[in-house]
Amino acid sequence: MAEVRRKRARRGRTVRRARFVPFRHRDRGLAIDVLRFELDDGPSRDIASGTTTLDLSAHRFRRLSLDVEVRVPRTVVSYVLPETERSAPPLALLVVLACPSTRLRRVRRIPLETLAEETASVRLELLRSELRGEVEISAVLARIRNAAIAAPGYAAHAAAKVAGSASIDLLVDPPVRRAGGYLEIRYESFSKSPSFEPGTLYRLDCETDTPILFIDADDAAVRQILDSRGRRGLVARAREVVFDAIGQVVWLRLYMSAIAGADEDGTCAYGWQDGVLRRLLPKLYPDLSDHASRLEQLCADRADGGLESFVERLEALVQTEVRLSDHVRAVAKELG
């Protein structure tokens, strides 16, 4: 194991991926812009061209109207269609508004033949009650029917996506943020809840949206140490060691949970796991230069050795992380 690890640590690695479809396609061929918006009965407000994020989270609107403009360059149409189809493009422009949290998709379909100019303007009307969090607005160009005769190198099937745009993000609610980006820690009376084992000091609950570390509030003497703020003296030293003891287990569990929850494509069961992985993986794979490749290596290692194989590696890592040995030495010094 140790030998393998050393070998791995010496290895420098760079990975890149690219995706292709088997037909002519312009990924960013369309240009999308939100021109202006209106909240409720308020005035129409213009938006600077090129805006990619529109933050409305400070407004408690009920209704929202957006004027969106999409440009479909003729060159793109020509590129994605065989010559035979260019005179009457069997394409539709879709302006799509998607809200992942509410699974809402609002689609405006504009047959390309109705488009006299290169640009299309669309007004989108939205209700706050159908949105939460973030909304993405984008455009795609898709075939509306199968090609009579498939031309090699060109998309022939109905609904084929032949061009797309960048997306514009609309923030309806402020991004969910943990307090200062730190773990949530709460005092609870362990004796008053059967959920907690008698005689325990803390408990981490991490299989949920936000991991929470519960600490027993029953013993005032213990709280006195935990809540102390001093930097010197025996109490401060004792506090550090207690924090270390808690910290080792908590980090180990956060790491293990995040390792178990990660997918190759970077999606995690819970959002916080991503943050934890971004912290952990550079330490676990110091020679891999980007997150994607580290993540991939993680998944490969997990497939090879199972979750247990990480425990040994993390044991040393969490100890150095919490600086346990430094803190124990500081106590020893304090005791003379």
Partner: peptide, 17 residues
């Protein structure tokens, strides 16, 4: 479907695919 605009798929097309 990875090659398609999902919003452009109708039920008939899905059945055909």
């Amino acid at each position: 479907a990875s090659t398609c605009a999902l919003d452009a798929l109708d039920a008939d097309t899905v059945v055909a695919i």
